[in-house]
Design a protein around this nucleic acid. Structure first.
Lengths: 118, 118
DNA sequence: ACAGGTCTGACACGCTCCTGGTAAGGTTGG
DNA sequence: CCAACCTTACCAGGAGCGTGTCAGACCTGT
């Protein structure tokens, strides 16, 4: 049988069993389960856990960072909003209706004026 | 003159002066400086600070997250490595030679055996 | 059926992040 | 020259992350 239990998987990957559960909770590597609920780690999962470790070491990342990267793939709206913000000259955000956006644009100068004359 | 000092900018953007310095330190919004070193916030910076706040509120982000997104733009190698990792079906990791991979597959059972007899 | 392995959930500790505050010193404008 | 602002560099305290460990219940192989 090519599937390992969680402690065996921990041994071969260098993570602790605790961390394997945590990694799964972050959505980074989730293993299939046996009928009774045991986690079963196959070659694919082991591979993923190994390369995950390499990834962290190579680029000085933390699990939370990879979790955020995952969130970026799952929420294209978020990725798009960040893209827009990083474009130096920000236009209108995707999900803001024109009226609201214009109000904001006006309000900007408004508040600046009231500030500088206050 | 259309440039504000840090406390004025804090007023109009809703950040604290302390946070404006922190945001600059993260590399998210850095302002030009006066000859003597005072930060000068122009419309472009104020705009950026405003939209930054919207961004955080809209997507439940934190400054560190945006900082990480910035890092992704600055380090294409990092972004590429993450891309690769997220490609779901990883066969052999790019940088692990076949011999090593096979050794691992064998070693797996090996180490489990030696473990249990140790 | 018994030993040992697994499950979830919780508590705890150390560490970093976020944010505020303060101290010591330079700048500016009246 | 003095008040009021700015600068950098620290310390502090609450919140969240990474990790271990324990408890109580369930599963498995001999």
């Amino acid at each position: 049988m090519a599937t390992l239990t969680i402690h065996e998987a921990a041994q071969t990957t260098g993570w602790s069993a605790r961390m394997l559960r945590y990694i799964e909770q972050l959505g980074l590597v989730d293993s299939p389960r046996s009928p009774s609920g045991y986690r079963l780690y196959g070659p694919a999962q082991l591979q993923r856990l190994r390369t995950l470790r390499e990834l962290l070491d190579a680029h000085d990342l933390e699990l939370g960072d990879v979790g955020f990267a995952l969130r970026l793939r799952k929420e294209p709206a978020l990725a798009g909003a960040l893209d827009e913000w990083f474009e130096a000259s920000p236009r209108k955000p995707v999900d803001v209706p024109d009226a609201e956006w214009l109000a904001f644009e006006q309000d900007k100068h408004q508040s600046l004026l009231t500030r500088s004359t206050a």
